[in-house]
Design a protein around this nucleic acid. Structure first.
Ligand SMILES: [Mn+2]
Ligand SMILES: [Mn+2]
Ligand SMILES: [Zn+2]
Ligand SMILES: [Zn+2]
Lengths: 133, 133
DNA sequence: CACTAAATTTGTAATGATTACAATTTTATA
DNA sequence: TATAAAATTGTAATCATTACAAATTTAGTG
């Protein structure tokens, strides 16, 4: 994965901050918050500002290389995976799982004549690890 | 719908505020925010405090007679409908629609051995009214 | 290499929803 | 009525996010 050309080909000028933030998001698939991203990167880029993290993530989203979602109305979480997928949060250990939606044949008969641009699904419960212990 | 006995049978002492707030939620199916509820009721109950609205809704949720969800990480919205259903938000007119999920046979093969307690679905796009105009 | 304009980054202040908490009021109980 | 418990209220604190202006970096021109 060449981060610089990935940014460039999506009309994002590849500054140091942008490269590092995207790289971080690409390698850390645990849906970090702004605060987590900032705290993990400020060692690398000592002048980094949290505002830059906010601005940069907004830029990524506007240019379609990052997605965002919110669980339970708390902090926004970010994801470099752009394929539509659901999320599962374990109420016991707090772990956030990616869930592929193979049967997105969701029938919403009421929405026959609606244009659906975006499907957002998240599930809550107990994960397999927590169930077996 | 007898609101007083509905509250009582769910272990909620029916104060004036609680009755009015639940009645409001039951009759206004447009998923109001705390602010909307407060502004609409303060005429009726001039001493009403926004904190009471927050406290009361939390009580309703804890006792299972109200559900809550958040769209786009903004203010929480409240719903007296407890049957599991999805929501559709029109990106044009902003209207929020209830959507019944008839085929909640959603197959999440990855979650075979997970316990799913809660399914949260919301969709975004353009509603039929906005499409035809 | 200067010089200048545009783009990016940064720090601080403002906003807005939600929560904490202590004081006041209302309700239940003896 | 007297007292304790429960509910309500108002204010202050918290915390994520945004606004904004200053500072820095980058790009373009001669
Ligand atoms: Mn994900
Ligand atoms: Mn609803
Ligand atoms: Zn777990
Ligand atoms: Zn519409």
């Amino acid at each position: 994965m060449d981060f610089i050309s990935h940014l460039s080909s999506n009309n994002i000028k590849p500054s140091v901050q942008r490269i590092k933030i995207f790289e971080y998001l690409y390698k850390n698939t645990n849906h970090p918050t702004v605060d987590i991203i900032y705290k993990d990167l400020v060692g690398d880029i000592p002048t980094l500002s949290k505002t830059t993290v906010y601005n940069t993530l907004k830029l990524f989203i506007d240019n379609g290389i990052t997605s965002t979602f919110t669980i339970d109305g708390n902090e926004a979480r970010y994801d470099a995976i752009m394929e539509e997928h659901a999320h599962f949060k374990c109420n016991d250990c707090g772990q956030l799982y990616d869930v592929e939606i193979e049967a997105l044949k969701l029938k919403f008969s009421k929405l026959n004549d609606f244009q659906i641009d975006n499907t957002n699904i998240y599930l809550k419960g107990i994960c397999n690890k927590c169930l077996t212990k």
